[in-house]
Each structure stands twice: as structure tokens, then as C-alpha cells.
């Protein structure tokens, strides 16, 4: 059983549960974890600031300035390999055979790379890096820049990170940022998680107010939840209820805890997507009205 031939790295049976869970989570959240446009921008800004702060007399020793401190080392290592893999990916995209789809190849390659990335000791807390100003600094301080024997590991870490992030950007339809022309028509057939659209509270409140005449009973809030679930990927029912209570919309019905789950249990069709609901129900009309109201708010 254990030693069958023709096995690839995908048969990760022998890795611990913690590691397997980590790989799965990284693959599921790949688009979120590896969209690193924000990191490039922040690091570049940091770099420009650093040049501005450095006195002209120090220009001769600039490498020393760059290597002082873990955060600067992180900045330098990342920016120096940044987008190095574009020419290679361009070659893959342009020279594909007629019967193969380059985007599918990229998807498969990214999966392999993410599995390797998850197994790297240096990536231990990568999930804690978020789009803010201090989390990447925390991460940088943990990297063993002082340990000379791990220099190769660090270089490989940044190369893989860069390649994954560029592939992720291409798969998220941002290829134009790199000057690449990509045909995305085939992408819908693969199981790519689109980056979820975000909706701000202000827009949502205004849209809800404009359909206020529908929201007469507690259970009607379920339709609002279903719109958010289908269009914006919001899954947490009790969080939704708490949010609504926090909005404090006085003239409308309240949304006490447990409303959504109770209503969906009593009206099973609500667990389907909105397009499959029976058209004569009040919930369906409310959902359609709310969608239009949100669209109108966003257009403003």
C-alpha cells in the first residue's frame, strides 16, 4: 500500500494532519493569500522613503544601508526577485500548443508550488501576513537572515513566493498589469475561486432603506442574507444577524438571533440559489428589489 509506484507528491498521506490541513487551507484561500500587489506597493514606498532619508554622504555605502535590519533585508530580498518570473510565464502563455490550455497549466503549477510553499519551514506563519503595515514587518523579523547557512532557503522562499503571486494575479484577470494578453474565456470552466466582491456597510444600509417597505416581519431579513450569501459569499448567519442589530435601523423589523436559520429550515427553497426560487414568493421579489437597489447605490 505505502510504496506503490507512480505516486506523486499529491498523495500526502504521510504528512501530519496539521500539515495536510495547512495545505488545504492555503489552496482554498490561494487568491487571498497570494495577491501581493499591496505588498509590492508598500515595499516600494518604503524603499523610496529610505532613499529620501539617506544622506547623500551615505550613497557610497548604500548596500550597507539596505542590509541593516531585518525589515530592510526583507524589502531588498523581495524587490530584487520581484516579478522575475514574468518572462518565463509569458513564454508559457504565448507558446502553448493548440490543444492545451495555458491557464490550466498555470493552475496546476500553482497548486504544486503552493504545496511546496506550505511545507517550507520559513513559511510557518505566512497566513498571519495581512494587508496592513505591521504584519509583514513581524513576518520579516522572524526570517533567519542572520543565519548564513540558510541563505539559499531564503532565496528559494522569495522566488517561489514571487512566482505564486504573479500566477495568482494572472489567474485573477490582472494580466494587463504585467503587459500580458490572456484569453480568459476558458477560465470559467475550471474551479477557480474568484476573489469575492466586497460590499461596504454604508452601501448596504442605503440599499436596505430603499427596500424598507418589504421588510415588515423578522423573517424577511433572510432574503437580505441570501442576497449577500449568493453575491458576496457571506456565510456566517449569526454574524449577519449581529451586524443587522448593530445597524440599528429603527423603522424596520428587528432581526433577533436565530432568525435566518429558523426561516431557512421552514422554507427549504431558501437554501437554493436565488435564481431557483419560485417566482411568486415575497422573498423572491424582495431579493430582486434589493439587488437592483445595491446596483443603483454602487452606481452613484
Amino acid at each position: 500500500m505505502m510504496f506503490q509506484d507512480n505516486n506523486t507528491r499529491h498523495d500526502s498521506d504521510m504528512f501530519s494532519l496539521a500539515m495536510q490541513r495547512r495545505m488545504d487551507m492555503m489552496l482554498q484561500n490561494a487568491n487571498k493569500l497570494f495577491s501581493l500587489g499591496w505588498l509590492r506597493k508598500r515595499l516600494w514606498k518604503e524603499f523610496v522613503n529610505l532613499i529620501g532619508e539617506t544622506p547623500a554622504t551615505e550613497y557610497g555605502n548604500y548596500s550597507r544601508v539596505l542590509l541593516g535590519g531585518y525589515e530592510r533585508r526583507f524589502m531588498w530580498e523581495y524587490l530584487s526577485v520581484c516579478q522575475k518570473s514574468i518572462s518565463d510565464l509569458k513564454r508559457i502563455l504565448e507558446n502553448a500548443y493548440d490543444d492545451t490550455d495555458p491557464l490550466k497549466e498555470l493552475l496546476e503549477e500553482r497548486e504544486e508550488l503552493i504545496r511546496e510553499f506550505a511545507r517550507m519551514p520559513l513559511s510557518k506563519t505566512w497566513e498571519c501576513v495581512k494587508n496592513d503595515n505591521h504584519s509583514w514587518r513581524n513576518f520579516a523579523r522572524r526570517l533567519p537572515f542572520a543565519d548564513f547557512s540558510r541563505k539559499e532557503d531564503i532565496t528559494r522562499f522569495f522566488l517561489i513566493l514571487d512566482r505564486i503571486s504573479v500566477i495568482t494575479d494572472i489567474l485573477c484577470r490582472k494580466a494587463k498589469e504585467y503587459g500580458l494578453e490572456v484569453d480568459y474565456s476558458s477560465l470559467d470552466t475550471y474551479d477557480v475561486q474568484e476573489q469575492r466582491k466586497q460590499i461596504s456597510d454604508e452601501v448596504l444600509i442605503e440599499a436596505i432603506k430603499s427596500v424598507g417597505s418589504f421588510l415588515t416581519t423578522d423573517s424577511t431579513w433572510t432574503a437580505v442574507y441570501c442576497v449577500l450569501r449568493d453575491d458576496y459569499g457571506i456565510q456566517n448567519q449569526s454574524q449577519f444577524e449581529r451586524d443587522v442589530q448593530k445597524f440599528g435601523l429603527k423603522k424596520l423589523a428587528k432581526c433577533p438571533d436565530g432568525t435566518v436559520s429558523r426561516t431557512i429550515a421552514n422554507n427549504v427553497y431558501l437554501s437554493l440559489s436565488i435564481e431557483d426560487w419560485p417566482s411568486d414568493k415575497k422573498f423572491t421579489k424582495l431579493a430582486a428589489a434589493l439587488r437592483e437597489a445595491i446596483k443603483a447605490e454602487l452606481a452613484k
Binding site: S16, A18, M19, R21, R22, K124, C128, K130
Partner: peptide, 17 residues
């Protein structure tokens, strides 16, 4: 000691197991 729990941390996974 590096024990950040703001995201999934491998150490936490190991500890749980």
C-alpha cells in the same frame, strides 16, 4: 517566542494534535 495566532500557525496545529 514566535507564536502568532492571528492566522493559521503550523505550531498551533502541531500543538492541537
Amino acid at each position: 517566542v514566535d507564536f502568532d495566532t492571528s492566522g493559521y500557525n503550523l505550531s498551533v496545529g502541531y500543538l492541537y494534535e
